[in-house]
């Protein structure tokens, strides 16, 4: 039951993009076409889960064990940055097809605040490892959901006649606002 609360809470109620404002840059940047949005969502999901596991282990076995909690920010960002590089190198060797699909998105992920945000939130909420992994997977699904919905809407938006001043980013932001309004309907679910 506890796990179900985490899942629904992360995907719908506190959607990472639309309610918590993490990962807005890729949300606005790569949502112009549905196909690139799928690639980005996949890459983020992959790195998010991996990064949460690794940063969790580092927090418990290194930072907490030696009383270095104040180094959290530096340690996590370095781990995530090197992890992204590592994933890129391994993918290139092991699965060129997957690398082709996710490759160009991987370098962008280092500065995606959703990854670092979820890693820090997992520690702040005092989850154990299993809960942390479920939390990361749910947030990745939530990110993918918001990104794909938004990309689908934006593809249609291109075909509409938008007032001149609102073309481009302004109308995209207002659309995201309306999407966030729809997600507010889920509040109180958990």
């Amino acid at each position: 039951m506890n796990y179900l609360v985490i899942v629904i809470g992360a995907i719908l109620v506190n959607n990472i993009v639309l309610m918590q404002f993490l990962g807005i840059c890729p949300f606005l940047g790569v949502s112009k076409r549905l196909s690139t949005a799928v690639g980005m969502a996949g890459a983020v999901a992959f790195v998010m889960v991996l990064a949460t596991i690794v940063t969790y282990l580092i927090q418990v076995f290194i930072l907490d064990a030696f009383g270095l909690a104040f180094l959290q920010t530096i340690a996590f960002i370095l781990v995530i940055a090197s992890l992204v590089q590592l994933v890129e190198i391994i993918l290139k060797k092991v699965s060129p097809a997957l690398y082709q699909a996710l490759g160009i998105f991987l370098p962008l992920i280092t500065t995606n605040c959703a990854i670092l945000g979820v890693a820090i939130l997992t520690i702040q909420k005092e989850f154990n490892l299993v809960e942390g992994v479920i939390f990361a997977v749910s947030n990745a699904i939530g990110f993918g959901l918001a990104l794909l919905l938004f990309a689908g809407i934006r593809e249609h938006l291109d075909l509409q006649s938008v007032p001149k001043g609102l073309k481009g980013t302004p109308i995209a932001l207002i659309t995201a606002g309306i999407l966030a309004m729809a997600f507010m309907g889920f509040s109180g679910l958990v």
Partner: peptide, 22 residues
């Protein structure tokens, strides 16, 4: 109340960018 909640952020910023562009 909507404006202090999440959707308000997107909508206000959208209009602000439109105004700055102008």
């Amino acid at each position: 109340l909507l404006f202090v909640l999440a959707p308000g952020a997107f909508i206000v910023l959208g209009y602000l960018i439109a105004i700055i562009n102008r």
